[in-house]
């Protein structure tokens, strides 16, 4: 029970790190980016390649995954994405589905369709007992919780305490007004997009062990990311974070207790949550 809960929390935090960049894309630019998972996949494969083929230390692999995904995000944002700002959702949907297909096909061609596996460093392996044998939990899960927790905290502080953060929040609240105030919304967005892609890349690398990694990654987890953002809203860290935790726990619990129903649980959860709580981000973009 506790094990399931902790596993759920760990994968929820991982989902948050993967998805939080998307909340900015959706919230700030009202852009439906179904290709967000592709950046996660990119990070995952960078990590796998460096670790398995070149023996780079795990932590360095994580950093490389984040950096390369951020770079990829920055390049694509400047070259392709910016053409579709302000266009209607159909164009954005088509564009980003197209990117997903291209990314999946390219990875499939380069790396094959199989699940990628990594060997974690010894210090992250094994399980430890907690609460007098009440439950055991994997060391890696604890590592995930600690690392992702630190990222959440850093993002929160960055958003609340820094000038960049306050400008970003202003821009998400009302891009038109923010522009009028002389806030360089486009540049803020470009930077945030790169950071969000980088975090997705980090999440993808961290997730190889937990979520798996194969060419269908972006499509498989697209729904998860959308739920996190749609349910959580865009202007805070807390909303998507809670949504991600909830999702992680529900998902793990569903797979653990109701394996025969499988992913059905999560899709149902998505639809129900969307219907129960279309506020925040979604209600706002509807009102416009």
């Amino acid at each position: 029970m506790l094990t399931v809960l902790l596993d759920g929390v760990a994968s929820g935090m991982l989902l948050f790190v993967l998805a939080c960049g998307l909340s900015v894309t959706l919230g700030l630019m009202n852009f439906v980016n179904l290709a967000h998972g592709a950046f996660g996949m990119a990070g995952g494969y960078v990590c796998v390649l460096l670790l398995n083929r070149h023996g780079v230390p795990f932590l360095a692999c994580l950093a490389a995954a984040a950096l390369s995904a951020a770079l990829l995000g920055a390049v694509l944002e400047r070259t392709l994405y910016r053409w579709l700002y302000g266009r209607d959702h159909l164009d954005q949907v088509l564009f980003s589905i197209g990117l997903v297909f291209m990314a999946s096909a390219a990875v499939d061609w380069l790396m094959g369709a199989r699940q990628q596996l990594i060997a974690l460093p010894p210090w992250l392996q094994g399980r430890i007992a907690i609460g007098d044998g009440l439950a055991t939990v994997g060391v890696y899960r604890l590592f995930l919780i600690a690392l992702c927790g630190a990222i959440v905290l850093a993002l929160h502080l960055g958003l609340v305490r820094t000038r960049f953060g306050s400008r970003l929040r202003a821009a998400v609240d009302d891009a038109v007004v923010a522009r009028g105030l002389g806030i360089p919304v486009d540049r803020i967005f470009a930077v945030t997009f790169a950071v969000g892609s980088g975090l997705a890349g980090l999440g993808g690398a961290l997730g190889v062990e937990v979520l798996g990694l194969d060419p269908t990654f972006p499509l498989k987890y697209m729904v998860y990311f959308l739920i996190v953002v749609a349910v959580g809203g865009a202007n805070t860290i807390l909303g998507p974070f809670l949504a991600a935790l909830l999702l992680g726990v529900v998902d793990v619990a569903g797979k653990y207790y109701l394996p025969e129903v499988g992913a059905f649980v999560i899709y149902t959860a998505m639809v129900v949550l969307l219907l129960l709580r279309p506020q925040g981000l979604l209600a706002r973009s509807a009102a416009r």
Binding site: V32, Y267, L275, P278, L282, A286
Partner: peptide, 22 residues
């Protein structure tokens, strides 16, 4: 058709996936 078009878009996606899984 309940909420905004973004919510609707995601609901169509979710319903499609639900039916597939079912």
């Amino acid at each position: 058709l309940r909420g905004g078009d973004l919510a609707g878009l995601m609901v169509t996606l979710g319903l499609g996936l639900m039916l597939y899984e079912a």
